[in-house]
Design a protein around this nucleic acid. Structure first.
Lengths: 171, 171
DNA sequence: TTATACTTTCAATATATTCTGAAAGTTCAG
DNA sequence: CTGAACTTTCAGAATATATTGAAAGTATAA
């Protein structure tokens, strides 16, 4: 398999993975494309390589920059902007996890707390109300624990994670 | 806030969370509904409570059963099937994590391995090919480590996870 | 076996998401 | 300024996903 074909295949795989993770396909493909390139690419080059429109390329590049997965570069004597992906895959994973926690887990916790307040004030002590409160509380606790676990993992540095320092992770 | 309103709000929240996680809204709402009910509900009751069609209710209940989040029940002298959710939230989380790993992470690893083979055979030793191989290998390694970490977490029992036994997770 | 009670399927429809591309906006060299 | 080079926006079109509901399928009691 030629190198270009392999890169192309990787971009497709990355796009599919993105969709499974609830990220849009083009955004993941643009990310995949930039991961395979050492040099920064212009919007034009991304459009060309993936066959997408200017608007689409622009929007997804911006979103990748927002996620901290891609950064903008400029070249002297050139007005274009160029885009380059963070290549350290541990850094990439950390940013994705951090971003998703911020967007998904944190708001859920807030909503559960709100619901806990609303429910605590007005409920009687009947069995049905009790078990509903337990449900909310259990989910909240699990969310908090998961969040703490993510913190722990994010605080590990790459070498700690990659080298089998924790015996748990060996094999 | 009345208990019924609070339950209703919880179902909406759960639906929204589901969508963010890439699960369809109705499936998450049905799950939310069943989590709030001690007794098993029939398809009719789910249709009624959420205002969805028979086909939709049927399909999403089946999918929840596939995920192991809901089980079927029958009552003596009654031909209907009833559905009841697993209430142990730790069990719920384990099943969701296990299912997503099976559907998302495992296939990704397979595809990366395939790509590694394809690439190793034919590539030269130029710098570009080297860094592409490193990219694939880094992603593969990270995936493997993540998978091992998930295994560890799934092997913990609830009390280990919920009680602050691991000093890491305290606070 | 037949009628009834129930479950499942799936083509048509509705809804939600993503993409396009031309126009408007911005920046900057000259 | 002015215009060329570039970026951003956004209404409409295309695509993908979810839902409906009637018809077909299945199981059981009598």
């Amino acid at each position: 398999m030629k190198l270009e074909d392999a890169k192309q295949k990787f971009i497709q795989i990355w796009g599919t993975v993105g969709v499974e993770w609830g990220i849009n396909r083009t955004m993941a493909q643009v990310h995949g494309l930039l991961l395979t390139r050492e040099e920064a690419l212009s919007t034009e080059e991304v459009m060309e390589a993936l066959g997408v429109s200017r608007g689409n390329a622009n929007m997804n590049l911006r979103e990748l920059v927002n996620w901290g997965l891609v950064s903008r570069e400029t070249k002297a004597g050139d007005r274009k902007e160029y885009f380059i992906a963070e290549k350290d895959i541990w850094e990439v994973a950390q940013r994705i996890v951090a971003e998703r926690r911020k967007r998904e887990l944190d708001p859920l916790m807030k909503m559960l707390e709100q619901l806990q307040n609303d429910t605590t004030i007005a409920q009687g002590q009947n069995k049905e109300a009790q078990s509903f409160k337990k449900l909310i509380s259990d989910i909240h606790t699990l969310g908090k624990k998961s969040s703490n676990l993510l913190d722990l993992v994010l605080r590990l540095d790459q070498s700690t994670f990659f080298k089998p320092l924790m015996s748990f992770l060996k094999k």
